[in-house]
Design a protein around this nucleic acid. Structure first.
Lengths: 231, 231
DNA sequence: CTCTTTAATTGATATTTGTCAAGCCGTGAG
DNA sequence: CTCACGGCTTGACAAATATCAATTAAAGAG
């Protein structure tokens, strides 16, 4: 671990409270690596050798079964992924691939687990992180089970709009991946966008404009217990 | 907290490593309550006043949105629920109701959080518990997104069969709830059972018999990264 | 035991979603 | 600039799933 990534990483909630000495030891055993786009970083079923931290770029978490594939989440800088597998030392449940050129810090899982046993602040930070992850997945499950694909898309657009703090914004991922993330086919996503036009959604390429937020909201019926990104 | 529940609770992984003194304090502030069937214990959106422990009976975790409802999990003795909400002091994401006459221990959330700050073993036990919960939800998401309802049912039956260590077993819940849990309507569950007959599934009321496990497995294609209950 | 109530099943139908095939469009290589 | 490629869109169709209505079966109350 050369350079100054440690500062960025140190500021992550996961590492912020850790003893300085422990943090330095952890970083000494870690290393940074640059990956080109579309490289598979980890594969479902593998043993967690490293805790991954995305420093720049972005990473797609996905899973395959019986020839089908689905995208489960996108990891943006600066945050970690596959924490649960690392902590429990159990096989990955998801695969991960870079979406773009990305810089990843690899922290040896053994070191992380060892530190977890010793550093109390770190152990507590992991609780916070895991709680958040858990709640995020629960919300996602509710989204999937309680809503139609059209409703999922409508709420997704509202969430993105809120995030961008604007009624006009660009999609942050390819439509094919968005489709997979929302649990539908690209063809249906295309039709779904069309179906939302009457509710005030304008689409041009990956640029979205919500012309009638009231109307869309009335249709989407967002709920804090599904759609709130924090909490 | 009278009686001897503490022993049972103490043996839970979540509390096993805790300082005796701390555990006793936690139990002193808690109390046991008996609930009849179909009582709503907590409601989505409420603030987590208590960490719940199911000592006997069983509890359904569910969620509603826009007039629809879905069952997300069943909690059996002896285990806790809504740990994540308690730890983060954020609103419940799910509601809970008793399925049968149940005995529930209510641990004041504030006490649990206070202890979390003090007792290192407890903090670490929470990590283990949350990791497990997280991984369970991820598996469930994969099940939902990668499989058809027929495949979900087939794999569910194989899991239950494995759990019962027998090719013949009884369903542990009403079919309507199973349908909701599997993300389908009761009508479709009924038809799905019919569709699995050619693969060696016999159904009589809530009694199931898998006459041709090979055949069903060939159809269901179970995966350890979706269907393993442990790991 | 009978009655009442609720769950489960079945058939007919509608809606949603997926599949396949073709064409379109924007981007990057040469 | 042109071409080739991949992603996006569109239409026609098929499959999966939901809805509605009616019936049957099962469980609980008296």
């Amino acid at each position: 671990m050369p350079e100054s990534y440690p500062n960025e990483i140190r500021s992550l909630a996961l590492f912020a409270g850790m003893e300085q000495e422990n943090f330095e030891a952890l970083m000494r055993g870690s290393y940074v690596q640059n990956f080109p786009p579309h490289v598979e970083l980890i594969t479902e079923g593998d043993t967690p050798d490293f805790l991954h931290i995305v420093v720049s770029g972005s990473v797609d978490l996905f899973s395959k079964w019986n020839g089908r594939e689905t995208s489960l989440a996108t990891v943006h800088p600066v945050s970690t992924f596959i924490l649960a597998a690392t902590v429990k030392n159990l096989p990955y449940l998801m695969s991960a691939r870079t979406l773009e050129k990305s810089r990843i810090v690899l922290v040896p899982s053994e070191d992380a687990r060892a530190l977890f046993d010793v550093d109390n602040a770190f152990a507590r930070a992991i609780v916070t992180e895991l709680s958040q992850c858990y709640r995020a997945v629960v919300k996602n499950t509710k989204d999937l089970k309680l809503r139609t694909s059209l409703e999922r898309l409508a709420n997704y657009l509202l969430r993105q709009s809120k995030r961008a703090e604007s009624n006009a914004f660009d999609l942050t991922m390819e439509k094919r991946r968005l489709a997979s993330f929302l649990g539908m086919t690209p063809e249906n996503l295309s039709r779904a966008f069309k179906s939302l036009e009457p509710y005030g959604v304008r689409v041009q390429g990956n640029h979205i404009e919500i012309t009638d937020c009231e109307d869309l909201t009335r249709f989407a019926k967002p709920s804090p217990f599904i759609d709130d990104n924090r909490a």
